[in-house]
């Protein structure tokens, strides 16, 4: 571990400590914003772990998330809450592995299409089961407070960042960067590209399912159309790309402003959220192809170049 690593670690720990104090402020409004930001930080960061290096756009977040909420919804009366989070994580990982095995051998388009419909597919199947059993939704009545949810999400976020940092330094992370650059070179350098992609795709799958499990008590009442709302997948994609999926902390830079913007638009102009989503996509493609992080990099390069000129 180098000196900068230790410095970054200490700074991150301090930042985390400050974030953890939020519930003590006593403001219900900011706590609820905090939960949303923590949730999207977890989802967008884990999303970018896979989609950043591989450039595969996954729209399956809502599917994994929904599965997680259902794990809590069905199990909270019989099992301790922490074990449900673990179970959700395992189910999410297994589901991701299955999806990955079916689609990641093929081109990116197949993967996008498949993940796009996955949430809807699971939703239809669960709705059908519920109709057959005559049940409508599930009540999730627990004594877990908003602050408790917030702290759990914060711990999960920490775990995601640590995982991302470790993957970035691992052979798997390096393999994925090579695959993202040139898959042909990757396989001729001894990399099993399908296996690497499937393994890494299990991370966002598992994390999104755990996030769903943690957030289920917040909804109190869950039903398929709520748990599998496809909008979630798109929000995650936008936030991650807006921040920049190329860096571990990139998505975080997108999550905070977009969550605040989304909150204000949806409370003032609730009809216009879809339009906002569309405009955000277009801005990313045409103005910020590498996100805020890319913009920052360019600025830094330019000032450095200018300074070098000044010296010479």
């Amino acid at each position: 571990m180098t000196g900068t690593d230790i410095r970054n670690l200490i700074l991150s720990a301090i930042a985390l400590g400050i974030c953890a104090l939020l519930p003590l402020s006593g403001s219900g409004y900011w706590l609820s914003i905090g939960v949303t930001i923590a949730m999207f930080t977890v989802l967008a960061t884990s999303w970018a772990l896979f989609s950043g290096p591989t450039h595969y756009i996954s729209l399956a977040t809502a599917a994994f998330f929904g599965v997680g909420t259902y794990v809590t919804g069905l199990g909270f009366e019989t099992l301790p809450f922490w074990s449900l989070i673990g179970i959700a994580g395992v189910i999410g990982a297994v589901l991701a592995a299955l999806v990955g095995l079916a689609t990641l051998r093929l081109s990116g388009v197949y993967f996008v299409i498949f993940t796009l419909g996955l949430a809807e597919l699971v939703r239809q199947v669960i709705t059908w089961f519920q109709n057959k059993s005559g049940q409508k939704g599930l009540y999730v009545l627990t004594d877990i407070s908003e602050a408790g949810i917030y702290w759990m999400l914060l711990s999960l976020a920490t775990a995601v960042f640590l995982t991302g940092w470790l993957i970035g330094r691992s052979r798997l992370g390096f393999a994925l960067r090579i695959i993202g650059d040139d898959e042909t070179v990757a396989v001729h350098s001894g990399i099993n590209s399908a296996l690497s992609k499937v393994l890494l795709f299990m991370v966002p799958g598992s994390v999104a399912a755990m996030t769903g499990a943690i957030l289920a008590p917040r909804y109190v009442y869950i039903e398929p159309s709520l748990a599998f709302a496809p909008m979630l997948s798109f929000q995650v994609v936008i936030m991650a790309l807006l921040g920049g999926a190329g860096r571990l902390w990139g998505p975080l830079v997108g999550v905070i402003p977009f969550t605040l913007l989304w909150e204000s638009i949806s409370s003032n102009f609730p009809q216009q959220t879809t339009l906002l989503l569309g405009v955000a996509f277009l801005i990313i493609v045409y103005a910020l192809p590498r996100g805020f992080v890319g913009l920052l990099d360019d600025l830094r390069h330019r000032t450095r170049a200018r300074m070098a000129e000044g010296v010479a």
């Binding site: 390096f174 960067r177 090579i178 993202g180 650059d181 040139d182 042909t184 070179v185 350098s189």
Partner: peptide, 15 residues
Amino acid sequence: RLLPSMSVLENVVAG
């Protein structure tokens, strides 16, 4: 075929 996002050294490490 080189890896465009990586440095020269990383390109060789990849092998």
